[in-house]
Nucleic acid binder design. Structure first.
Lengths: 356, 356
DNA sequence: GAGAACGTAGAAAGCGCTTACTGACGTCGT
DNA sequence: ACGACGTCAGTAAGCGCTTTCTACGTTCTC
């Protein structure tokens, strides 16, 4: 029924071992024999059975890339870059093609662990985890344990845009400098003269959310605007990284402080939702309220006005993570590299102006 | 070293067969025995080796989802929905978890075939192909052949947002009604009174591009505005589905016909790029030039002005494709379902007005 | 109370590959 | 001319599971 290595061997009048060696190119085979085998492969339209190969060789050609939300370009860009780099790294050696697969956790702790187990089942060659982590201690421990087992079993682990694991230098980590990016963004607003600044923070239980919020508060504190804990809470709203959250939160911030002159959002999508809300309230950006985002996603430059934001080199980081996963790039010293963020000032921020 | 089924069996004092049966839940095992086995699994932190399982059972828990561009939410939304549906369908049966993996072809014919081969190697349980196909006859034939071999080997094949394969009803296809969506969009512009309409079409060699362009031209022809072939060519520009293309093409269309009053783009991303170009030229949307897109991606509603576009139920289609891939939904009669598109009129289109 | 029927578990034969190990030739140095 | 060596190919032993077939109590059934 299905054609196997043995069928190819029979047709080429060689032993199965020889066919295997031709296909894997890891052992000298005489040119004439090789030709004969290749011809048989072609004629029978034979495709190696990866499950059998992996089992026998105790290797795998699967590389997993975990993302929180595949519909979000933030992850799409990183994942695409990683996948590209993996294909590229693999194309060198014969038969070394890796199947780079992206797994969408939807931000769910359970799904993340399920995927990790599935990848472990598959004895994946490497796994790349992108984006911020959930800050539940139990979950962090569970993930760390899983990653340790994976690493033990020979999988390469790479974190991309995710903080390094506490106390594990064996895992390469590419961490975004969210904190100082956020700090610089808020400093920019403060320098323009804003004092009443609202912050829309993203989901409360994620590292990315926390780091950006900390950066923002650092800047506020440095300007003597920290306020008390309650005041901070009042000026900060949490919610998912989507436009709806930005829309609703902007309305709520405005309700809490009608004199607000600026809104900083934890990502561009939220920021754009906030802009829409302001517009619907008859407020102009930046004339009445300045708005800033984070990430510099492709559509942010085309927003009207262009969105002031913090640029993260998502593509470069993803590609580097892919190379790290393939072992074609040296891990950073200490296992951790911090990726700098760059402030992008566009039209959505300007000096404050009293509203009539 | 690595713990195997046999280790678990030894510790639970049962045979390997029993452990396998407990783990797969496909055979009666006494409750007490099951407990003992589960305890041993837990204590040894054992994880099934999927390569061995797949080899022995001649099955696979891999489902591949092919996308053209993972960074594009058009694909991200479909892929995420499909992946969700697959997880959901799988969660019922014990051990039935599928590893839904998305593969990014980058729109390259070569990568598409490579991934298909890799998936075939893995004996994937199903493969979902999303988005338009490349219209190179050689490539189409190669893909059709690969899919035939995959189907023959027992993989379920589902096309999502991709036209049905010529002459193969065994493959379920969810085809978007791009043609009539585009027709209705252009009719809307014509009804507003536009006569000089430019079209930015996307990459020349893709089915989606062609179908949308055909719909547009149908509407133009029905209004007696078909013009000759040369005129059509002049009013149509091709390029990638990105903002840059939209920006450049809008400039070029304007150069070719300064009296242009409307631009229709083959997708929202292009449309937004076109809006940016118009703005940079000092032209207002929709006052000076109306702009329309296609897809209704999440950010289109927040564009300023809101983008008139054609809504495709990407999420629903992706989820349905996922269920089809899992066999939890009946394939449509004849193997093909056409997914309707809905016109979304927003602020970016209005009646033409002579420019000073 | 004998035999059928049932529920549960083990033995063992693969699944389709990879890869030591082994062997058959030539070729080369001396 | 002879042994040492290098090159290429075959043999066969698994890799870690699944599953068929068999076996051994129990519980019914008449």
């Amino acid at each position: 029924m299905t054609v196997t290595l043995a069928d190819v061997a029979a047709r080429a009048r060689v032993s199965p071992a020889t066919v295997s060696r031709v296909l894997n190119g890891n052992y000298p085979v005489a040119a004439a024999t090789r030709e004969r085998v290749l011809k048989a492969v072609d004629e029978l339209d034979y495709v190696l059975n990866a499950t059998a190969s992996s089992l026998a060789a105790a290797t795998s050609d699967l590389v997993g890339i975990l993302v929180n939300d595949i519909a979000d370009p933030f992850f799409g860009i990183m994942a695409g870059a990683a996948q590209g780099a993996i294909c590229e790294s693999a194309s060198g050696r014969a038969g070394g093609e890796k199947l780079a697969v992206v797994c969408n956790t939807g931000g769910s702790a359970e799904r993340e662990l399920t995927y990790l187990t599935l990848l472990q089942r598959q004895r994946a060659a490497a796994v790349v985890l992108t984006g911020g982590a959930l800050e539940d201690p139990g979950h962090i421990a569970a993930v760390a344990a899983k990653l340790a087992r994976l690493a033990e079993a020979g999988s390469r682990i790479v974190l991309c845009g995710r903080p390094a694991l506490p106390g594990d230098a064996s895992v390469a980590a590419l961490a975004f400098d969210n904190r100082s990016g956020a700090r610089r963004l808020t400093e920019h607003l403060l320098a323009l003269g804003h004092r009443r600044i609202g912050y829309i923070a993203g989901p409360a239980d994620r590292t990315t959310t926390r780091h950006r919020l900390e950066g923002h508060r650092e800047a506020m504190a440095a300007a003597g605007l920290a306020g008390d804990a309650e005041g901070q809470e009042r000026a900060t709203l949490h919610g998912p990284y989507d436009r709806r959250c930005g829309y609703d939160a902007a309305l709520e911030l405005l309700r809490r402080d009608p004199e607000l002159t600026a809104i900083v959002a934890a990502n561009d999508t939220i920021a754009l939702g906030a802009c829409a809300a302001l517009r619907d309230q008859g407020l102009r950006v930046p004339d009445d309220v300045s708005v800033a985002g984070f990430d510099d996603l492709p559509f942010s430059v085309d927003a009207v006005p262009g969105l002031t934001t913090v640029r993260l080199p998502l593509y470069e980081a993803g590609a580097r993570a892919g190379r790290l996963a393939m072992g074609t790039e040296e891990p950073p010293p200490g296992g951790v590299a911090t990726i700098a963020a760059e402030l992008m000032v566009r039209g959505s921020t300007a000096g404050p102006r009293a509203r009539p």
